[in-house]
Amino acid sequence: MNSLFFLIPIALVFVAIAIRVLLWAIQSGQYDNLDTEAHRILFDDDRKPAVKKSATDNNKTPK
């Protein structure tokens, strides 16, 4: 049972870290716009050349 004296504080530290990370993610705006981001993955660029051509014309790579 004595192991609990270590395990409980460790668990608390982990909870604190998890909450910090969540709060940071919220504050940095990652949850502001859930509708647009949900679709972004569907528009992945698998045909690079077509996009690159237009991008190099303007000296800029689209992110």
Binding site: D35, T36, A38, H39, R40, L42, F43, V51, S54, A55, D57, N58, N59, K60, P62, K63
Partner: peptide, 16 residues
């Protein structure tokens, strides 16, 4: 629809 955002972002980000 969501594709519009894709188009707008791609088109504008290509501008210096």
């Amino acid at each position: 629809c969501a594709a519009c955002t894709w188009l707008i972002e791609k088109h504008l980000l290509a501008i210096d």
